[in-house]
Design a protein around this nucleic acid. Structure first.
Lengths: 133, 133
DNA sequence: CATAGACCTTCCCATCATTGGAAGGTCAAG
DNA sequence: CTTGACCTTCCAATGATGGGAAGGTCTATG
């Protein structure tokens, strides 16, 4: 299986497969006589794991840890859960931060008539130094 | 006022002030005889505007537009509002996407005992190819 | 068997906003 | 006059990804 087929089978682009190999998230692939990378079923499985974890927003570094635990059949589930929990906390933080922004932004947008006249509370707010608002 | 004072007064780091000048978000600053950048009150005001807009999550390119409108005393508020509205929509999208992630992540974390035993639904889910779940 | 075109390889560059640091010049207080 | 805190420019790195060039390989068809 060459890199293109592995990409199709796993949902990870060929570009990213090479990148993951470079940063040692994947072991260096076997090569054919002509130098093409050669993948097997277990490589695809690993790539699918990575793909799904990326979809869930895990960073590459956290995926590195998850892969190690995945390959360690005696890992305590505690360790996996703590990685997931840390990730959840970060996502929650980001959401909270953005909801704070949204509140302010909606407030400003609501106050702006959005018509042909120049008066605009949005610009006024940006200009008047950083009231918490 | 040198760049350090302007940074303190505006909340934008000296590094970023130079960068904003480089990308023409700011006009090139006047220079003293020895080559130091020299800022006045209106420069600081503009920097404060940028600072506040960045805090609200506006991209540099949108801030570029906002600054143009800010400097145009005859702009229609409609144009300002549409920039803000586009930004709001993007933030809302991101929040929705992350809330979707959270739901899945919490589900997985809840299913994992997080104890000393190896059984772990989180890893199982990542390994079993991308069910929507 | 030759050729086309769809692959593959490596290498470099760009993104976005920001920070870090090196090497060297300037300013102000002691 | 020295010291230390500034300033200057230039280069590099971040994280994950995509784009593209230059060149080699594979395969199907004429």
């Amino acid at each position: 299986m060459n890199i293109g087929s592995a990409a199709k089978a796993s949902g990870v682009s060929a570009k990213m497969i090479r990148y993951y190999e470079e940063i040692a998230l994947l072991p260096a692939a076997k090569r054919t006589a002509s130098g093409y990378r050669d993948y097997g079923q277990s490589d695809v499985h690993r790539l699918q794991f990575i793909h799904r974890a990326r979809d869930l927003g895990f960073s590459v570094e956290r995926i590195r840890l998850l892969l190690q635990l995945w390959n360690d059949r005696k890992r305590p589930s505690r360790e996996v859960k703590s990685i997931a929990t840390a990730h959840i906390a970060e996502v929650e933080d980001q959401i909270r931060r953005m909801q704070g922004l949204l509140k302010t932004l909606r407030h400003l947008a609501d106050a702006c008539d959005g018509d042909g006249r120049p008066h605009c509370p949005i610009l006024e707010d940006l200009a008047e130094q950083g009231r918490a608002h």
